[in-house]
Design a protein around this nucleic acid. Structure first.
Lengths: 193, 193
DNA sequence: CAGCGGATATATCAAGGCGATAGGTTCGGG
DNA sequence: CCCGAACCTATCGCCTTGATATATCCGCTG
């Protein structure tokens, strides 16, 4: 239940764990972290921050930086309760973790996620996509594909998901490989950087 | 203005132009046509149908098929006004047509779209993605990429968009290639599997 | 035949996201 | 000195989503 629509909250807490931030900067970093298509709007961010204040996960701090006469900014800081909530949620590897909206965010915080949880999320995600793929392939054959463009759109969609599955498979292999030894050549090199 | 949130309406009109349908069947076909990820909910569909009734684009018809089923069904039928609205919108190749939400739907109805409009939409879409790509690539280099997983996520996202751009380029080439010929083509070949 | 489950079908509600917009500050360049 | 761009907080209306309610139809099995 707590993992229902808490994606945004969780992402905010994850960022605030690195350093306190004000709303504007928070939005920029969230878009960087999560948003490839649509941008996160303030109409989502500020209500979320208020919910989190009410829940006691964050606190407001008036920022008065020395040196330059800084303008008014409200800096948000994570509380111990927020840290605990984030820790609990990041540990959870239930079905919610591999839904479309949640997966990217969960992946982005994989560095703070246990290896076994990482693996379960990746596998859950892959199976999710695999099921979707199977459904799409059967409905495509059975359906009325009179239209050339509709068919092409479906073909491309299926191919995209197939690519996604391959990506996840590589990641899973890499995760498994790094548990024991060095993985052989893959796109995600664990021994590098 | 009319092209703001009219994606759903337009898709409904497109389907109703083939044949009258009731809500349940409409939803199934819309999900087939547009939805690869999230499903369209009735909470979107029915309000949209009511808006369209108010606008006079569709009418309700009580379906009382004798002998088959006495079950209550409300069948929706497109009106001449609806046909006109659909025609106007499908002709429009403005920026709204290549946004994320609209593009797939517009593409799905390409068979009823003029060749020049098709081309403009495909090119607009490609440029949109290209811009997004450029922004992503620069912010990735400049940004703080301390995190292995965040970097991998960005890399994969960029690669996905690059793939999308290549797909669009192929489609554009195909459109241009077939443009020289007769205006009324029933079947064209793009696939070289 | 009864009754059970699953698909069909219409509809509404609370919660929340999004785009638009508004208001205000800071800063660099012409 | 003014302008415009970036910075920063905030709210509003419209819409979508997911859940839920209600009811009917159909095929299967006991």
């Amino acid at each position: 239940m707590a993992s229902k629509g808490a994606t945004l909250e969780l992402a905010v807490l994850g960022l605030l764990q690195e350093t306190p931030l004000h709303g504007y900067e928070l939005r920029k970093r969230l878009n960087l972290l999560l948003g490839w298509g649509r941008l996160l709007s303030y109409g989502s961010l500020y209500p979320a921050l208020k919910r989190m204040l009410r829940a006691g996960w964050i606190t407001e701090v008036a920022s008065v930086s020395p040196g330059v006469s800084r303008r008014q900014r409200i800096v948000y800081q994570i509380t111990p309760e927020g840290v605990k909530f984030f820790g609990d949620q990041i540990t959870d590897s239930g079905p919610a973790a591999w839904e479309d909206e949640n997966f990217n965010m969960r992946f982005a915080f994989f560095s703070r996620t246990n290896a076994d949880v990482r693996l379960r999320i990746l596998e859950g995600r892959r199976q999710r996509l695999q099921e979707r793929l199977d459904r799409a392939r059967t409905t495509q054959r059975g359906g009325r594909n009179g239209d050339r463009y509709v068919t092409e759109l479906q073909r491309h969609s299926i191919e995209s998901v197939e690519r996604e599955v391959r990506w996840l498979t590589d990641l899973i292999d890499a995760e498994r490989g790094s548990q024991v030894r060095e993985p052989h050549r893959h796109q995600l090199r664990t021994s590098q950087e």
